[in-house]
Amino acid sequence: MNIFRLAGDVCHLVAIIILLLKIWRSRSCAGISGKSQVLFAIVFTTRYLDLFTVFISPYNTIMKVVFLALSYATVYLIYMRFRNTFNSENDSFRLEFLLVPVIGLSFLENYAFTPLEILWTFSIFLESVAIMPQLFMITKTGEAESITTHYLFFLGLYRALYIANWVWRYHTEGFFDQIAVVSGVVQTIFYIDFFYLYVTKVLRGRGKMTLP
């Protein structure tokens, strides 16, 4: 464990909690893409299947349980508890455009052709595109509440910190996970234009982010 990965995990947790609290306190999921949240729940489910078979550390196990619980709680709030506030017509991204290539690629490019390994690879590739429905919704509605942009900021920052973690681990312990690194770089690249908007619009105290 290194500071970059710990900071990344904390950012990830903060992002998930920001979103969950926003939905719970505003009792509304307007402006939130339920599809992205479903994809994140699938990412955690397919990645943490070894939750009961592999024990790395108490931290690792606890964080996996927390991420699974919070992501399913978020999906529950969107599609069950506050479903009357869910504007599905804005959440119109075609998930098959993401799932088909990701499933195909995880069968082609993986470390071992075993169910667990393919599901892990699927979760890595899926995570890199899981935010697309949310970013698509923001471009479609042309705006995002500032709390939603803070959620996206921390979510994007977490994988950027993981890249720093991979650089650090490569130089200190020769660790290199090609699939995770390539997918993590792609994932972070998707956030770059958002980061620019976030810094220029939201941090300048504009409150709501309105796209040009």
């Binding site: 990965r5 995990d9 990830h12 070894d50 592999v54 790395i56 550390s57 690792n60 964080m63 996996k64 991420f67 470390y111 892990w120 993981y162 973690n165 312990e173 020769g174 660790f175 290199f176 996970d177 090609q178 995770a180």
Partner: peptide, 10 residues
């Protein structure tokens, strides 16, 4: 590239 260690990352 050096082989990857078991999945110890979240």
């Amino acid at each position: 590239f050096p082989l990857r260690t078991p999945k110890d990352e979240l």
